[in-house]
Write a protein that binds this DNA or RNA. Sequence first.
RNA 1: GGGGUGGUAGUUAAGUCGGUUAUAACGCCGGCCUGUCACGCCGGAGGCCGCGGGUUCGAGUCCCGUCCACCCCGCCA
Length: 632
Amino acid sequence: MTNVARFIDEVKRTHSCGQLRAADIGKEVVLFGWVQYYRDFGGLRFIDLRDRDGITQVVFDPDLSQEAHDLANTFRHEWVVGIRGVVRDRGMQFSKKKGEMVSAHNTALATGEVEVLVREAVVFNKSETPPFEIEDSVDTNEEKRLKYRYLDLRRPKLQKIFRTRSLMNQTVRQHLSGQGFLELETPVLVKYTPGGARNFLVPSRLHHKKFYALAESPQLFKQLYMVAGFDKYFQIVKCFRDEDLRLDRQPEFTQIDMEMSFVNQDDVFNTVEQLIFALWQAVFGVDLKERYPTGHFPRMKFDESMRRFGNDKPDLRFDLEHVELTELTIAHKGGGVPLLAEIAEGYLNGTDRREVPQRIVKALVVPAQSTLSRADTDKLEDFCRSMGAKGLARARVGEDGGWTQSPFAKNITAEFRTAINEAVGARPGDLLLFQFGPTAMVHTVMANLRLHLGKKLGLIPEYGTRDAWKFLWVIDPPLFEFDEKTNSWAPAHHAFTRPHDDCVQYLGTDPGRVLCHRYDIVLNGFEIGGGSIRLHDPDVQARVFAALGISEDEAKQKFGFLLEALRLGAPPHGGIALGMDRLAMLFAGSESIRDVVGFPKTQKGTDQMTEAPGPVTAEQLAELRVGVIETT
RNA sequence: GGGGUGGUAGUUAAGUCGGUUAUAACGCCGGCCUGUCACGCCGGAGGCCGCGGGUUCGAGUCCCGUCCACCCCGCCA
């Protein structure tokens, strides 16, 4: 029997490398793990042995076992080894460097009071020199980390993240099951449905010229579970979207998906709030009741969020709110500033409507104590340009309320300047930053500018949380958004979101005014979940389709099975999906979603390790009757 | 599709105004060391400067193109 087999079959591991404490002194133990560091003193040799639990120092003393000591001399980084030995107190030792007796305890290690004196050792497997060092402190570029993901995952930091993910999964299942939710599965291979995110397509071998789609979410199926009478559903489920990636997006990602019958918006919120409380308790041991004594998170209307923050996922950890100046600009007819006068003119002559503002004016105040140099503001301007802005107008407020360093300074009327100072609450030394023009651009630029400044001025960390958890429900968004390309109304969400009862009257006449029971839950500026109360009334559904210009035939063709289901005894229902990866990312205080996904894709959607996506043979394509079009 | 940042030894980085032998730390290899803990000390090896063109007497450095990674806009819950 080889030594390896004997250690695995007979000797057996007794403890993990993070387990041993002073109470274990005197025990004979067996540890298996990876060689983290080795320190050689000619005679005495120390090895830091690492596994997923932690690190234990093991000592090889030639006086005790020459054989084990000789073997240990061959150990290198990341070899997989096993040792059998006795736990002992590290005690007081004579330090040659310091010339006195010192405690050999290592307070930086959980196991630091003890060490294992080795009697017998075995090498399970050698390792070539790893392409990078397995340490939290040493950073390697993303490309290398992803190519050797299994090595990256050995780093204690990532090990911790994945243990947290496991705990999250467990907590969700336990909590929701306890609330009467059934964990039900839905198909991944589904029929392509237009609208929303782009689907990954899967050719059907059995049906030529036909394709499945990978489910972008279980949306329709969970509604059908409601129609089937399951009442409360949840699933921790993979979803697939073929869209461009971001720091917080992967092409395949995991949702905590939920749906409930006979509920209103408050019921959904209560359920989610309780789940979030349970998660924070389990993961951090934090009772969110201390921060949210009512047990509920604050709510903000979509409109308000756009006005104050420029997006629908405001980071409430800091202020720097936007100030909306469009009305003021109109009232002052641009106040002598040609570019603003042009915008005011649009509203005054009726080209622009206040109800659907196409162009707006916004400002943001950088307080006097946050000194930004000229170079800093120039960089801010570049930052704004990169997002489609024409520039970044600014003004430094003087002691008398006058403006300097501003392109507006020489043209603006004193009345308009005073009115703006008052509207934004400007004080001497403050820096005012302005954006004006197309609504979407202004919102995007100002929202990102706010975040950028928040980080630059140290109001929020570059990433991570510092334990500041700011939750928010964003509610009552419009049901439709105007698509300028097609000059028609398009669903802002999926087409089965329930409009507010008091808005149904506008469906035919003024679609832009229709608000709906759609909601997002936001944490520290990240949208961690979203859902809606669904439209279960076939009549209202028909009016929504009409407003969208979708004919009965077209609706039938696209969503026929769901429309039919809604006519066959569908209960009122609604639900939500929480982004598991984003939650895990925030839990980990991590800088990227890739840190919390086992084997993530790059921003171009490739897997650096397996080199997916890869080519397939002509035979494989032929079997699927799929041709490849060469583009130049 | 657009904008930005980066790519130099196994790894992380430095490399000035274009100048002759491209640095450092860690890692790797060899040696010494019985209380270290990211041990220490001595010695050594290691480079297609992402790739392809161009400018130049001369390119890691300047120009053009291209690939890869990251961040953002568009897109997307």
